[in-house]
Amino acid sequence: MSQSICIMRLSAIGDVCHAAAMVTRITQAWPDTKVTWVIGKIEHQLVKGMHNVEFIVCDKAQPDARTQLKKALGGREFDVLLLMQVALRANWFASVIKAKRRIGFDWARSKEGHWLFTNERIAATKHTHVLDGFMQFADKIGVPAMELDWAIPIDAQDREWAQQQANQFGRFVIIAPAASKAMRNWTAAGYANIIAQLIEHNITPVICGGPGPVDADITQNILALCSHKQHSKLQNLVGITSLKQMLALMALADCVVAPDTGPAHMATTVRTPVVGLYAHSNPLRTGPYLTINQTVSVYEEAIQQEFGQSWQQLPWGTRAKGKDWMSHLKSAMVWDNIATLIHI
């Protein structure tokens, strides 16, 4: 058993959710082990307060982020570094972390010189979900298998706020329409159609998202297609909630509808079912972990048309590039999966 473990995973929200499951496995199996997680500034707002975890926030937007990280570490040496990010910047930051064992991804999943910053690698696998890939780091250092849990804390104030909202909404479904890139977003018309059907079934549609322009733009496009009556029935919380408040609200929702974006994986951490909307990435790799079977996807079609081969014949993680693939998702398919999950 390692006495001290440092984890490097800065971003993004979805990947941090997956990493939280692996971190929870370590802290539950080895409660006496000192766990330090180097994490991004925004992502920390979601997972802060995790039991038995020391967080060192690394604001990668700052030009002196590496220097500040080195200062925060204070020359400490860890038994193990789990370098769970292959991006060059994360690798460069990790170079200031002293550790006897520096464990990274296998050759197939390594890029941007990742191997230069490690001295051990996790086992090579084929067709592995990102969360399972992260769990391989725990396997590598001998952490016993545990029941899957994320254990991201939500304080009483945020739970109370969410309960107050839920009391006003009645039954509700959260729509988190914005991905990090606009091409991964479903159509405004598609979301408007789902909103109309939810309202017809006396279920409150609640639109959630961050304060960024992509979230704001798609939300405005959706709202422009909703009638005045529908506006009075739906709730728009985009840019209003904190990450912890959004998580608390998701825990009370009937389900969440979202593309390949952080909120889909946030909902999974509180075991709220998700209807994932996918075209560019393989849902078997990045889909909502507990409800992959409820994903609506045209990924296979997109890959076949763009590459002339099935995804099984291509490197794992191959993405479709076309900007219009999400428009191939049909509202009827999405609604059928929602109806199945919430039993209407």
Rank of each mutant, 00 (worst) to 15 (best):
N167W: 11
L237A: 14
K181I: 12
D254Q: 14
L249N: 07
K233D: 14
G170A: 12
T286D: 04
H201E: 15
L237W: 15
M266E: 08
A216M: 05
G190H: 02
L252A: 11
N282G: 11
I222D: 01
K229F: 08
A189K: 01
H280P: 06
A178D: 13
V238M: 14
C226W: 01
M266F: 07
T204F: 01
A176F: 00
P177W: 01
T261L: 00
A253G: 10
A224G: 03
I207N: 03
S227T: 06
F169V: 09
H228Y: 10
R171S: 15
H201N: 15
S242E: 14
Q163G: 11
E160Q: 14
A267E: 14
P263I: 00
A253V: 10
P211Y: 14
K233P: 08
N236S: 07
T286A: 09
K244P: 07
G210P: 12
L249P: 02
H231D: 13
L249E: 10
A166H: 00
T269H: 13
A162K: 09
T269G: 13
A196P: 05
V270Y: 05
P259W: 01
Y191D: 01
H231F: 12
V257R: 06
G212M: 11
H201K: 15
K229A: 10
E200W: 05
P259M: 07
T241K: 03
R159I: 09
N167R: 13
C208H: 03
V173P: 03
N167T: 14
A189P: 01
L234N: 00
M250R: 06
V206Y: 03
Y278C: 02
L284C: 07
D217A: 14
Y191K: 08
